[in-house]
Design a protein around this nucleic acid. Sequence first.
DNA 1: GCCGTTTTCGGCCCGACTGTTTTCAGTCG
Length: 581
Amino acid sequence: MTKEEVADALEEIATLLEVKGENPFRANAYRNGARAVLQMSGDLGEIVRGGKLAGVPGIGETLRDKITALVETGELPFLTELRQSIPAGVVQMLRIPGLGPKKAKALQDAGITSLEQLKEACESGTVAAMKGFGAKTATKILEGLAFLGQVGNRVRIDQALSVGTALLDAVRAMPGVVRAELAGSLRRRRETVGDIDIIASSPKPAPIMETFVKLPNVQQIIGKGETKSSIVVQQHVDGERVTLNADLRVVSDKEFPFTLVYFTGNKNLNIKMRQRAIDRGLRLNEYELAGDGKTIKCKDEAEVFAALDLDWIPPEMREDTGEVELASRTDHKSAGRLPKLVEVEDVRGVFHNHTIASDGKNTLEEMALAAKKLGLEYLGIADHSQSLNIANGLSPQRVRKQQQEIDELNSRLKGIRLLKGTECDILEDGSLDFSDDVLATFDYVVASVHTIFGQPVDVMTDRIVRAVRHPKVTMLGHATGRLLLRRDGYKVNLDKVLDAAAEAGTMVEINAQPLRLDLDWVYCKRAKTLGIPLVINPDAHHTSELEYYKYGVNVARRGWLEAKDVFNTRTLKQVLAHLKK
DNA sequence: GCCGTTTTCGGCCCGACTGTTTTCAGTCG
């Protein structure tokens, strides 16, 4: 079983325990365990066999045994029994806003065990008559059932950022608003987000609440209080309809830095921050840092962190995966140990892009000019290779022709240099789609899997490892082939792939297409520790997609990467020198 | 279920909002 599958199983146990009404801390322990597994570095099978699970924080004896069973046998009787005791319909109910484990259990106890039965029971008045429920709850459940599949689903970062930024601009333009920022997973730039969080400061919150719930794209008002309002907002982004929840909290300007800190970090980080406050005889909440009758004034986030003897942690890192320990000035008596994260401006060029020669929409020259306009020094062209007919892959003859065109353009264009690459298919057995002498004509080779996704994990892993070890391969393209919210990637043991890449000196791409964002940030951290250079590639099929590399920078930052860890922050001269080797 | 220089038992972050309630439980973040 892969890390992801083990983590899913532990998550499911947590959910089922909650619905059963078990001790919530017990359920939470499984949830923490799931997180811990996802963030382990190295091959899970090896960790288990080497007895290394024991030292992992959050994993005690029980979880160690359960994880071991999952890894070794692929199943867990404990989970199977839990599943049998709770109908799938009851678990599905948790996706309805406002319906949590307690109410789901009450419904199950009342014999309501499917979404269909729930709808009937709401309409017939059965639910409204139940203890702890009422007419409004029944109505909300019906609304929730109708919205299921729309609201509550996660949304890609590019779409959520578009909607969120529009809302943020609207809030900032409201009279009386002093400061306003995005918070939550959107500010942390997670690959997908569940809702939009906005924090604003103002001496008079009430009129802002009023205006917020009446903004043009508001489809539904979920709640409106004195300082917090919640809406469902719908907006078209690039022709696609995007629906998601948005929360606005308004506090005084004095409170703003504390609120922003609180609503940006993930849950575990907040717990850790509060614990730090407690250790210093203080109390931290979303409004203040206080204790002993005094309050500590902070004008921005950095001062809040400083008051807890911490360096300011960039939002993308606030996932509680060791950043607090690095930021601590007390534990290590030295500041400035956090990585200096790579920035969009550091990127000087990109390597994986397509033209009309294969399945792109623009010509070489159009792509080159667009790249120049973005301020890039070099643009690598990597059209598909010969066997990928569906994407009009290039034959060796067409490759030669394209390379001549590139030479011609390079002699003519100023301020941008085109590089000759290929996105060469990794064939079924791990061999490459071009012969070595054709491969030798390129400046670099991106190797990617595009076919036969259904191979067993060991076969796929061996296939990719073989390609990664090929001396002509410069970098591995989209590592798992995932499409966010649409399709899981193919099954592959990425830890083994990364080990092979480190050994062979092959780079690994961070595919910056917002639909892919693959390599996942968790594996970026591991790649960095293995010393593997990462490459942020937009995989652009259109001039407008070149700028996607900014989403790749987000992933890199979440993966703690600095400019020196990212190959395409190097100058053209450095890149050419490296590729010649 | 995890964890420990106050602890091997008894805690585990905490506040806003809603709806169902006469003072609070559940949900959410």
